[in-house]
């Protein structure tokens, strides 16, 4: 329950901080940190325009997409306190429930019959499929390291001791940040700030969404950042008591947002044809973590 509320709060600020960082880096003042939330609230109050080509899929999809992210949030623990739902192998459910959300966002893009949105849908489905193995191998490494298979038990048992385990944690952070970037279609995979039709993946998929639905999709994106941020926080807090852990949560989320802002400011978008290699390379980083764990456990015999 605690983690759920914390992620909600972090989600409210996360994108604002990214935008602010980008503004400062490019020498502008930039909007307030709560501007993204204001945008969403304004969208909630608006009417909607639907394409005549669309069907009930298009009406349902944003709701299911948003729900899938909220559902995934419920699985994330915070230190010793479990998530709202926790069981052995819950990270499988986590990945698959997010995939269900993606399934619906892809078919809702196909529902409009637009060539732009088809393009985005095609790429989204390919990239998310390529990013998935990295996450599963990463979780496998943690399971191997700690001997547990649920988020909470794994993170609670994860204590950083040797140098190798620091290396593992840093690599894991890298993988998770990159997965978050792919999930949200941000730089260097995709540039959300280009002219809409040129933006190749996520933004182009939601061209026809408007009003309440668009608000849901945008807020799901904000929450997704905080969601992956929370997993990264969990890598580090372990058994730290709450009075320190909660401030630490926000500090790490804040740092992450700034790092993402900086990445977006200083790195150019990849060519689309190079993205698959880059994404699949994440799996090799995960495998590196896996071998690191084997080293720690002395299983290399």
């Amino acid at each position: 329950m605690l983690s759920f509320i914390l992620i909600l709060i972090a989600g409210a600020f996360f994108t604002g901080i990214i935008i602010r960082t980008k503004s400062v880096a490019s020498g502008r003042k930039g909007p307030g940190i709560l501007q993204p939330i204001n945008d969403v609230v304004r969208l909630f109050k608006k009417g909607a325009v639907y394409s005549g080509t669309t069907s009930f899929i298009f009406q349902m999809a944003p709701t299911i997409y948003f729900s899938s992210v909220v559902m995934a949030m419920m699985l994330i623990p915070f230190g010793q306190s479990k998530g709202l739902i926790s069981f052995n192998g819950d990270f499988v459910f986590f990945a698959y429930v997010l995939a269900l959300g993606k399934f619906f966002s892809i078919i809702s893009a196909m529902d409009t019959g637009s060539s732009f949105e088809g393009m985005g849908a095609s790429r989204e489905s390919l990239y998310s499929l390529l990013a998935e193995p990295a996450f599963f191998i990463l979780m496998g490494s943690f399971a191997l390291l700690t001997g547990y298979t649920s988020f909470q038990e794994m993170f609670a048992a994860l204590h950083l001791g040797s140098y190798i385990s620091y290396a593992i944690a840093i690599l894991a952070t890298f993988v998770l940040v990159m997965i978050a970037m792919i999930e949200n279609s941000r730089m260097p995979i995709d540039d959300p700030k280009t002219h809409l039709e040129l933006t190749m993946i996520h933004e182009v998929m939601i061209l026809d969404n408007s009003g309440f639905d668009l608000g849901l999709i945008l807020s799901a994106g904000y929450l997704k950042f905080a969601l992956y941020g929370a997993i990264i926080v969990n890598l580090f807090i372990g058994m730290v008591p709450y009075p320190y852990a909660i401030p630490l949560f926000f500090v790490i989320q804040f740092l992450l947002a700034i790092i993402i802002g900086l990445i977006e400011s200083f790195i150019a978008r990849f060519r689309m044809s190079h993205n698959p290699q880059f994404i699949f390379a994440l799996t090799s980083v995960s495998l590196l973590i896996f071998f690191g764990v084997l080293l720690v456990l002395g299983k290399f015999i």
Partner: peptide, 21 residues
Amino acid sequence: IFMVRKLVSRKHTIAIESTWG
């Protein structure tokens, strides 16, 4: 969420147009 969406969007105008091209 679907109920909320229904309730909220009841007050607003819904337009049917062609797909954005």
